[in-house]
Lab assay of single mutants.
Amino acid sequence: MASQGTKRSYEQMETDGERQNATEIRASVGKMIDGIGRFYIQMCTELKLSDYEGRLIQNSLTIERMVLSAFDERRNKYLEEHPSAGKDPKKTGGPIYKRVDRKWMRELVLYDKEEIRRIWRQANNGDDATAGLTHMMIWHSNLNDTTYQRTRALVRTGMDPRMCSLMQGSTLPRRSGAAGAAVKGVGTMVMELIRMIKRGINDRNFWRGENGRKTRSAYERMCNILKGKFQTAAQRAMMDQVRESRNPGNAEIEDLIFLARSALILRGSVAHKSCLPACVYGPAVASGYDFEKEGYSLVGIDPFKLLQNSQVYSLIRPNENPAHKSQLVWMACNSAAFEDLRVLSFIRGTKVSPRGKLSTRGVQIASNENMDAMESSTLELRSRYWAIRTRSGGNTNQQRASAGQISVQPAFSVQRNLPFDKPTIMAAFTGNTEGRTSDMRAEIIRMMEGAKPEEMSFQGRGVFELSDERAANPIVPSFDMSNEGSYFFGDNAEEYDN
């Protein structure tokens, strides 16, 4: 993207840094990872977990959730003011799984939030270390993106479920800051804005008074975040219109849905970061690795190297396929839920299948599930090659597409044709070009129609051997075009429920 120079890199967003050079960025990201790792080690000690239990991804998720809940100030305040039966607002906890007599047992633990905050700050040299908290939120978000298709949420806001490739980060909490905003897809931002506008339509006082002023500035800020994701002048001009509207209503909703559809071809720039579970960072720190000293990046080879040398386990339900569970977590670790499966298959070195073909449910185990038949197995999170994460949407291309997802959002900077089903997408653009945004709409449609099938995206960008740390010898991959490109292809993934 041309304006790259004016933006802070995501590592800076990730670490609240002012302008830093590459070495400083690597050190501050490393410091953040160190903090998460030290916190995780301490929690495993508190909970008396064995090494194996500490490497269980379900335990990692519970521990991450506990610290996120302990620092969720708004919710904590709300819980104190609106006490609900049987919930102690000062405590947080969740299921911890232990191996007892050759069987997995679930144990519900409860801790004072104050105590968890103390352990977290102690692991982070006394700081609140917001960057580390956001990092864990993005890992949870990436896992949700890989596990669930947001059909219901899309339909509720009037969008087409086939636009799911635009929904990265749709389950990120509001408090995820600049680093969170960077990884949100165009569809996620559109959905947040539509929800806001709908509230304004239904509630006369939404934009009024002292609160209304705050609401208005939040609305304009979200519009600017979305505008910054678009790469064409016409899309940005249309966002200006939406932002400046005196009284946002149905016309703005129409414009936003139009823009979301246009992003299936004229893709937005959305950041991709490899955020790993805390149970990967903990053992690495415990083994003596100093992330701050060595430096770390979320968008280069580092996460690949770390996963190459990590042992992570997962509980497996009786009829689940461990290899499929591994694929789910591998995609989440690489922030690749909406990437082209052919690119992923090449990088991973084994075939990556669409969601609907995987015999696996989510990673988390519900409290009512029976533990008797639970097994555990090693997650295979290694890769054959590594590639640089991208934040450009890439230019655009036609490809055989599917009944489910009709476009992709690249996660890796790797040369390819970008699949999208042009006739299906263009069919949504018939007729409606009147109104105050008509010239911009016409211009956007013209650009979409001009998108050429034979153009290559990320020209000359390749993948790298894991021994090639400096990215000196790019390998331009070859793809098996007979395979499906979309992950949520004609899909039956479970729906995400809060």
Rank of each mutant, 00 (worst) to 15 (best):
V476F: 00
G212F: 07
Q399D: 01
L154C: 10
N142S: 11
D72Y: 09
F258N: 02
Q149G: 03
N125G: 13
C44R: 11
D468M: 02
R470D: 01
G209Y: 13
A451R: 14
V408S: 11
T215H: 00
A442F: 00
R391L: 05
M371G: 02
S3V: 02
G349D: 08
T62V: 06
L306R: 14
K31Y: 02
M456H: 08
N395F: 03
G485D: 00
V312M: 15
E469M: 05
E192T: 05
G187V: 11
E454W: 04
L266V: 15
G356A: 09
G282P: 01
V155I: 14
T147I: 13
D497T: 13
N142K: 10
A70N: 04
D491P: 00
N124D: 10
N211Q: 13
P83T: 10
K214G: 02
A123W: 10
I41E: 10
R317V: 05
L61Y: 12
R216M: 07
G249E: 08
G158C: 13
R382H: 05
S335Q: 11
K48I: 09
K91M: 10
R121P: 00
L381E: 06
N473I: 11
F412C: 04
S60Y: 01
R102G: 14
G37I: 10
L379D: 02
M440V: 01
R446V: 11
G404D: 13
Q42R: 09
E24T: 13
S407H: 05
N319Y: 00
P410K: 01
S486V: 00
P410M: 12
R213D: 09
K422E: 05
V476G: 11
I225D: 05
N319E: 02
E14R: 15
L226E: 11
M191F: 03
K113C: 03
F338G: 12
T350N: 05
L264Y: 04
Q235F: 06
N224R: 04
E434D: 03
G228A: 13
C164L: 01
E115S: 12
G490R: 11
A233L: 12
E107W: 05
K87F: 00
A85H: 14
N125A: 06
A218E: 02
S478C: 07
T157K: 02
L379T: 05
I445S: 06
P410T: 02
D421F: 04
S287I: 10
D497F: 10
E455L: 13
T215Y: 01
R461G: 07
T188F: 03
D128Y: 11
L79W: 04
A401T: 10
I253K: 07
M1H: 13
I316W: 01
T147E: 09
F458D: 01
E465G: 12
V183L: 06
R355K: 14
S165V: 01
G30E: 07
D340I: 01
A22E: 03
I194V: 15
Y487T: 01
N59V: 07
Y219C: 09
V29Y: 01
G268R: 01
N125E: 10
D128M: 13
R389V: 01
Y52V: 09
M456R: 15
E469Y: 09
D439E: 07
E369I: 06
D127M: 06
D101F: 00
E210K: 08
Q12D: 08
P453E: 00
A401Y: 01
M331P: 06
V312S: 02
E434S: 15
A237V: 00
M448I: 14
A332W: 02
P410E: 00
K113H: 11
N247Q: 10
S274C: 11
A2C: 00
E64P: 12
A284W: 13
R361Q: 08
D468Q: 04
S269L: 07
R19A: 04
I365V: 11
R267M: 09
R317N: 07
Y10Q: 07
E18T: 12
V329H: 01
S60P: 08
D480T: 12
D145M: 09
V186C: 08
R342D: 04
Y296Q: 07
I265Q: 06
Y219H: 14
L358D: 06
S438N: 15
D421H: 15
P423N: 09
R162N: 02
V100P: 13
G460F: 01
G180K: 10
M167S: 07
V67K: 07
T424D: 15
Q398G: 01
K351D: 03
S245T: 07
G169S: 04
Y281S: 06
K229N: 13
G450C: 14
Q364V: 11
S467K: 15
E454A: 15
R38P: 08
R221P: 03
A332R: 03
N397W: 12
N224H: 12
W104M: 09
C333G: 14
E380C: 09
E443T: 03
A2E: 07
Q459Y: 03
E14C: 10
T157S: 15
G393V: 09
A260P: 05
K48C: 07
R26F: 13
T92K: 05
E107Y: 02
V186T: 14
G431R: 01
T360L: 11
T188E: 12
K7M: 01
S438I: 00
R208V: 02
D421E: 00
C44H: 03
S326P: 02
I388L: 07
T146C: 09
F338P: 06
R389S: 05
G404S: 15
I96L: 15
Q398A: 04
N368Y: 01
T360F: 08
Q122E: 02
K293I: 06
L381D: 08
L172S: 05
R246L: 03
C164Q: 05
Q241A: 04
Y487D: 04
A251Q: 02
G177M: 12
I425V: 15
M136F: 13
K87P: 04
G185L: 04
V29A: 12
G462A: 11
D160N: 11
I265S: 06
R174D: 05
A179V: 10
S69G: 15
V329S: 03
K325P: 02
S314E: 07
S359D: 00
D88I: 04
S262A: 15
Y385P: 14
A85T: 14
N124W: 12
G185C: 07
R400Q: 09
G394H: 11
M331W: 04
E220T: 13
N142G: 07
P89F: 15
A403Y: 03
I194Q: 10
N247G: 12
T424N: 13
S438L: 00
E375D: 14
L226Y: 09
D72E: 12
R195D: 03
F479W: 04
E24V: 14
S413Q: 06
T232Y: 10
A129C: 07
I36H: 02
E292I: 13
M13V: 04
E494V: 08
I253V: 11
Q311F: 01
V352N: 06
I388M: 01
N319K: 15
K77W: 00
E53R: 08
R152W: 07
G394L: 00
N21A: 03
I41L: 14
V363L: 15
K87C: 10
R384L: 05
L315T: 08
V414H: 01
M331D: 03
G435N: 08
Q415W: 13
Q409D: 00
Y40H: 15
M189S: 08
L358I: 12
K273E: 10
G132V: 07
K91Q: 01
L68C: 09
M426T: 15
P477R: 00
D112G: 10
Y289K: 13
P277L: 05
Q409V: 14
G54N: 10
A178F: 00
